[in-house]
Structure formats: structure tokens, C-alpha cells
Design a protein around this nucleic acid. Structure first.
Lengths: 150, 150
DNA sequence: AATGATGTAACAATAAAAGTTACATGAAAC
DNA sequence: GTTTCATGTAACTTTTATTGTTACATCATT
């Protein structure tokens, strides 16, 4: 895994959980699907658990499940749950603050980013996990659309 | 300096150049203002030079100057010149591409980010370096800022 | 020529993210 | 109640991106 891809990981995992609603999926299995480590999966899904999107059960037949239908899980919820921003912070060192120009640049960019953040959230609200799953395999009857990837 | 702050650095430098239009400012001087290193300044301003926003002259009395009035330099131009995105890339490893779900997640997020990028650019277009300079230290004598034409 | 600036390569230091190991905790099966 | 298997989490290592630094070639001006 290379970049800041926790959001991607989360979305990917959620689609898998959506596609297999009958039984819980373990971190180890998901890790194989996502080509990463079980602990990384737990870290990411742990945030989704705290946000009430998924649930985890221990022991035999344990693992992860969705807590609500995939059509009701918006990307905005997932995004918010991850506690990270799609926007890069542009602020400079606190030490620079004594310079009025730096303060203003930080302020202008801060306002701008806050604005942009709200805009992004509004757009993410419109897409659900089910939308992604649908797009991943539009027609389950067609062979290459219906493969159970993993 | 901590984070991805090249855009902030660029804006800060441009405001300084705007405020001292009579003489060129050296990388060393700017580095002091921006609390960073002369080479870093050259790297950042070098991109602005390639974008036609500033010019650099060598030798005695050399340094950096604006190529056009600060009121005509939009943050979008500066943003584009930096060749970086305010949006974090969310794609996973190329190795993951064999999985249809990963492809779809990457595709969905890619489309979304491209869309968002255009939106950000449109908003950055509306703010100029002069706007930031004005906000940093409003000039009581010239409330609208002196247009440096020629 | 001497001076003083940029341009750039090469490397070091730093910080952020992800990967890994190890183990405690809890739930279900036997 | 013991065993088994899963999560929860801490601690550490590895990797990657960014920035900082040094060094020096290049070029313009005096």
C-alpha cells in the first residue's frame, strides 16, 4: 500500500461486506481481498465501527458485518468516520504566525478549505456503497460482472 | 516547516513581491521572510517562473519580480503552477487493479476528485494576490490598492 | 576579472503513513 | 471449563513524501 488510501480501503471493505451479507467476514479474509494486513483492516474498520456503520463480533464465526443496508451508507458518512480530510492542509509553521502575511494566507486558505470541505461532503452524500457495488458488477447474471472477487 | 505548504509559500512570496515592486527580491531575503531556505524558495518560485507569473534575474541587483499586476494573478494560476493538488489521492496499489471492486472504487473516487478539482479551481479563480495583500494590511491611503500597470 | 544572483543536482533530516509483531480480551464450540 | 478463534490495541519497523541543506555550475552586472 502506498498512499493515503484509508478511505479507499474502507469503501472496498464495505462493498465486500455488502456482497456477502449472510456471514461475517474476518479481518484476515478482508486483508487478502484488500491486499493489506489484518491489523490495518481492523484499524480502518474500527473507525467505521465507532461511527456505527459496521459491527464486529469475536470468536467462532466472528468477523465484520454491515449495520445497515448499503444503500443507506453514504460516502460522506464513511469519509466523516475516517476522520481525515480529502483536502491537504496548507498552513505554515506556528512560528511564522508573527508575520501578518502568513497569518492572512493561512486565514484565506483556511476559509477556502472549510468552504471546499462542505462542498465535498455535500457531493459525497449523494453516493452510497450500494452505488459503488452496482457499478462494480452492474449485472450479476453476466459472468465477468458477477465474479466474486477476492 | 512542516506540511505540504508549497502553495502557502508561493502565495506568501508573491505578496511580498507585490508589496515591494520597485526592486527585485533575492531568494535569500525571501527565505528569511518565509522562514525557510533559499533553495526552497527557488524551487517554488521556479515553478511560478515557468508559469509566467514571476521573473528571475541574476547578478547584481538581481532577484525575483512579478511579471504582472497582483490583481491579475489569481490563486488558481498559482495553484495550477505548483502542479500539485489540494485533493489527496485515494487510489490503491496498481497491484490491486485485478480486483473489480478496487477498480470501481478508484474510478468512482477518481471521477469525484476530478469534479471536485474543477470546483476548487473555479473558486480559486475568484481570489487574487492583491486580495490577500489587501486583507493582510489594508492601506488607508489607497483602499482599493494601487494598480501597477505597465 | 570580481561579485552576486539564480539553477540544479545530490544528499540528509524529518514527518506521515502503512506494515508488522505480539499479546490481552472476549465469545462461541466442544 | 477448556479450547479455539476472532477482535482490540500497543509498540515497533519499514516505507514514502516532503523539506532542509550543501555544493557548485551558470550567467549578468559592475
Amino acid at each position: 500500500m502506498k498512499r493515503s488510501s484509508r478511505l479507499s480501503l474502507a469503501l472496498h471493505a464495505l462493498v465486500h461486506l455488502h456482497k456477502q451479507p449472510d456471514e461475517a467476514i474476518t479481518s484476515a479474509t478482508l486483508a487478502q481481498c484488500l491486499m493489506t494486513n489484518p491489523v490495518v483492516v481492523r484499524r480502518v474498520l474500527g473507525e467505521l465501527r465507532e461511527a456505527g456503520i459496521v459491527t464486529a463480533s469475536k470468536g467462532h464465526e466472528g468477523g465484520w458485518r454491515l449495520l445497515c443496508p448499503a444503500g443507506e451508507i453514504s460516502l460522506r458518512q464513511v469519509y466523516a468516520a475516517m476522520g481525515e480530510s480529502l483536502l491537504i492542509r496548507t498552513e505554515s509553521d506556528p512560528g511564522d504566525i508573527e508575520c501578518g502575511i502568513v497569518r492572512t494566507v493561512n486565514s484565506v486558505m483556511g476559509d477556502f478549505l472549510a468552504d471546499a470541505e462542505a462542498l465535498l461532503a455535500a457531493r459525497l452524500e449523494r453516493v452510497s456503497i450500494a452505488d459503488i457495488a452496482r457499478q462494480a458488477s452492474p449485472n450479476p447474471l453476466h459472468p465477468h460482472g458477477a465474479i466474486n472477487h477476492g
